[in-house]
Computed example of a mutant assay.
Amino acid sequence: MAIAYRQQIDDDTEFALWRIKESAEELYKQLQLNEEEKAYTKKLIKSKRYLHWLGTRVLLRKMLRTEEYIDCKVDAHGKPYLVSLPYHISLSHSFDYAAVMISKTSPVGIDIELIKEKVERIAGKFLRPEELSFIAPEHKIQQLYVCWCAKEAVYKCYGQKEVSFSDNITLHPFTFQHHDTLMALLHKDEVNINYEVSYMQYEDYMIGYVKG
């Protein structure tokens, strides 16, 4: 397995992308799974999610550089965590790519999406009017995907359910670049957290990532 892209954020944090070229059988052989995980994968075996699930776990294993069993569970809010290793993690996938972000010190969030024109039709569902107002016509589709990936990354980093992208996560105005940062505010009840979200375009994909 070859990692397609890897970026060190700081001494304790990095993310990586991997293009899924192997078959599900080849990926499965690279993993150590317990009985519960084996039963779960059998439910996924006929769906695209099966390849994605395997791909993110194999990539996680490569990034952690271990041959030991990795106990990766999901909490009540759907956030993955490692039971016995001192890392915060975030997982994402889209079509041919898996993405994993890890940190020893802080919660993290990452999202990868294949850039498609259809995002324009749903933009009003995850952006407020004032956010839509700073979308530049010349980079409309790309910038909309930056907004989606940034909000998804913040949501994953925060790690709590019932957060509305339009009502609870606000993006400050920004100008689209192929690799840059933007500011986001998560506001819900008594919670107000500012995030500096990084984003980049990789081939035909957009990636948003953040460290809490």
Rank of each mutant, 00 (worst) to 15 (best):
M200T: 14
L64E: 02
D96Q: 13
D96G: 10
G159M: 07
Y50L: 11
V83G: 09
T41A: 15
I193M: 05
W18L: 15
A39Y: 14
Y28G: 01
K73N: 13
V146K: 02
T105M: 09
Q32G: 07
S164F: 15
Q7F: 12
Y87H: 13
A39D: 11
R61A: 02
D75H: 05
Q7I: 14
G109P: 07
E138D: 10
I70D: 00
T175H: 14
E22M: 10
K21I: 15
L82I: 13
L31R: 01
L114F: 08
L31G: 06
K38E: 13
K29W: 02
D111H: 04
H52T: 05
R128P: 03
K21D: 14
D189T: 11
K48H: 14
I9V: 13
K151A: 15
V83I: 11
I89Y: 02
E35W: 12
D11P: 04
K125T: 10
P80A: 03
Q7N: 15
E22V: 09
F126E: 12
R121N: 15
Q201M: 13
L59Y: 04
V83F: 13
S166A: 11
Q143A: 09
A2H: 10
L132N: 07
G78S: 02
P107H: 11
V119H: 03
V191S: 10
D204Y: 04
N168M: 07
Y155K: 03
I112G: 07
N34D: 12
V119E: 00
I169N: 01
C149W: 03
D71L: 01
I115C: 06
K211D: 05
I45W: 05
I115N: 02
F95V: 07
A24K: 12
E67Y: 10
D75V: 08
S94H: 00
D11C: 06
S47T: 11
S84D: 12
E152F: 10
V74G: 10
D96E: 12
D11V: 05
Y195G: 01
E35K: 08
G212V: 06
I3L: 06
S47M: 07
W148F: 09
L185F: 04
G212T: 07
K73T: 14
C149N: 07
I89A: 00
S166G: 05
Q143M: 10
Y155P: 01
I169C: 00
R121Y: 10
V154A: 02
I112F: 12
I3S: 01
A184C: 08
H139W: 12
Y158H: 15
N192F: 09
H93N: 02
L51I: 11
W148I: 06
